[in-house]
């Protein structure tokens, strides 16, 4: 039995199957756990989302004027002394659209500035650095293999 099992595990083609079994087991256990003793959703979240349907920047309206700060609930505000400036910033073009269109926030006009940029570039910048580095490494692998074929 153990011999059969170890032979099965040693075949690399079966590894995804084994991993899937583990994940399915954990997910099933998770459902069981959630039904028996439900977790509670923490109401005091960082960077809470608020929706103001009347604002042209909805759902990204977080208050503040360009070059002024707004209130942002970060984990360690003391580490980001200029917290809130990026959130309230609008480029002139997006300010123009915000003044003329009531649906600026839901268009694909993604200009620098806003709450997501605040998180991505400023407070959790290291996440984005890691993410772009992963893309960079993956792209390096793909382009290395591709260019080697061409030669």
């Amino acid at each position: 039995m153990i011999g059969r099992l170890s032979r099965y595990l040693a075949d690399i083609d079966n590894l995804t199957t084994v991993y899937a079994v583990v994940v399915v087991a954990v997910a099933a256990f998770g459902i069981l756990l959630l039904v028996v003793s439900p977790l509670s959703y923490e109401e005091e979240q960082l960077y809470p989302k608020s929706i103001d349907p009347t604002s042209p920047l909805n759902p990204y309206e977080r208050g503040g004027d360009p070059f002024n700060r707004t209130e942002v609930l970060a984990q360690y505000p003391e580490n980001s002394p200029y917290l809130g400036y990026v959130t309230s910033y609008l480029t002139p073009l997006s300010a123009f659209f915000a003044a003329t269109s009531p649906y600026m926030g839901t268009t694909i006009l993604t200009h620098p500035g806003g709450i997501i940029d605040e998180i991505l570039y400023n407070t959790r910048g290291l996440d984005t650095v890691a993410e772009t580095s992963i893309l960079f490494v993956a792209f390096a692998i793909a382009s290395f293999l591709f260019r080697r074929e061409e030669e």
Partner: peptide, 16 residues
């Protein structure tokens, strides 16, 4: 999680 932070975490998750 439904916060702005979750939205910002989705982008790295997707790119990875």
């Amino acid at each position: 999680t439904a916060t702005d932070l979750a939205e910002a975490l989705i982008i790295p998750g997707l790119v990875v």
